[in-house]
Design a protein around this nucleic acid. Structure first.
Lengths: 202, 202
DNA sequence: TTGACTATCTAAACGCTGTTTACTATCTTA
DNA sequence: TAAGATAGTAAACAGCGTTTAGATAGTCAA
């Protein structure tokens, strides 16, 4: 006991986040606890509190990492040569697949709320804004008569909508008839919204 | 102690749900606990377990009550003589206001997940479906060339989208520039989507 | 009216949780 | 080599969801 510097603080952080991620994927949200994370990294809880302020802090860091990962993937997708509409669809399809593959982690990402009306840290909000910017970029390619503000609003709207479908779908709150897939809703949303956007701004 | 039948089982249930609701509104999600609910009704935890299977069951009942309340209000709104688009907007505006007024309860309503991939009870899913049906009814009034299935898909899509805006907005994940209100996103979503729907199904 | 039975409710326990504390063992520096 | 700082642990605390045994009060038959 009391090993000295076997792992740097940064390493400990990485280990903790990796352990937490694994627990979430394997046992779901209910399985996540400080003791389990600590045990999985071969330490005790106390050590965890040398690296994170508390569990909320750990979750926030985990969520930030998820957002980075998500952004990285979506950023790659964006570089295709398809029409803006197709690119947005591909982005959205990746988004929902990501949610389906890591339901607990995804749920934690968006269901997480700061305690007592405290605001999210700026660096966290920035990571979310970056995702919206990817959609905004595609809408910009449509060449509509919209200023920056209007474009931003449209992108936020469209992506929030996509998010809503993912949220309800992954949370099993969408009782879809027959074998309708949530992807159909996503496609419908993107197609109709963009179509409406094109028609209404002429 | 050991009072006999001072309150019927149904009364106890009502008292528990009312107490839970009050705690949620006043202390947020983190403040909700079986002991607090029991104390607020003047009983001990044990009694709570005579009425509910467990906390998840209590939450589920609470959520069902919320959905009923929500439906009742939205059902009234629906009876206006405005255009379908306007009615849907009014429905959505009420929806987000409801979310804003009871953020914790609303969050609990949609962030609640059954344990271990268990499915939601049928009576719960039915209550959700009822909400979507209200939107479907309005889209039906548009007189589009859409069969029942297509109408259902469109309604699910549109309302999921509205839900997404509410979710991100109430969860503070929408960093809106300036003094943009989430209602603007909702209106944009409804207007554009319906506009696209009208244009694309001709 | 008494006694047995049953339903109602409580108190206490169990194992878990997040978090803090006192402490020990190790490494670093003088 | 001694002193000090750091890394890590073990144990405690209050609170959690849930279960248990037991006590109390009401009901009904004799």
């Amino acid at each position: 006991m009391a090993r000295r510097s076997e792992h740097s603080r940064e390493e400990l952080k990485e280990m903790a986040l990796a352990a937490a991620e694994k627990i979430l994927d394997e046992e779901g949200l209910a399985g996540l606890s400080t003791r389990k994370v600590a045990a999985a990294m071969g330490y005790t809880v106390g050590t965890l509190y040398l690296v994170f302020r508390n569990l909320d802090d750990l979750i926030l860091q985990l969520n930030a990492q998820r957002l980075d990962d998500l952004y990285e993937h979506l950023f790659m997708i964006r570089q295709g040569n398809d029409s803006p509409q197709e690119v947005v669809k591909t982005l959205a399809h990746f988004y929902i697949q990501y949610a389906r593959e890591h339901p607990a982690a995804w749920h934690l990402l968006f269901s997480f709320r700061m305690p007592q009306g405290q605001a999210l840290p700026g660096w966290f909000e920035a990571r979310i804004a970056r995702l919206f910017a990817l959609v905004e970029e595609q809408l910009g390619r449509l060449g509509l008569k919209l200023d920056r503000q209007g474009l931003k609003l449209a992108a936020s709207t469209l992506w929030s909508g996509v998010h809503g479908v993912c949220d309800l779908s992954v949370g099993d709150k969408l009782s879809l008839s027959g074998n309708t897939k949530p992807e159909e809703l996503i496609d419908s949303l993107i197609e109709r919204y963009i179509s409406g956007l094109v028609h209404d701004t002429e």
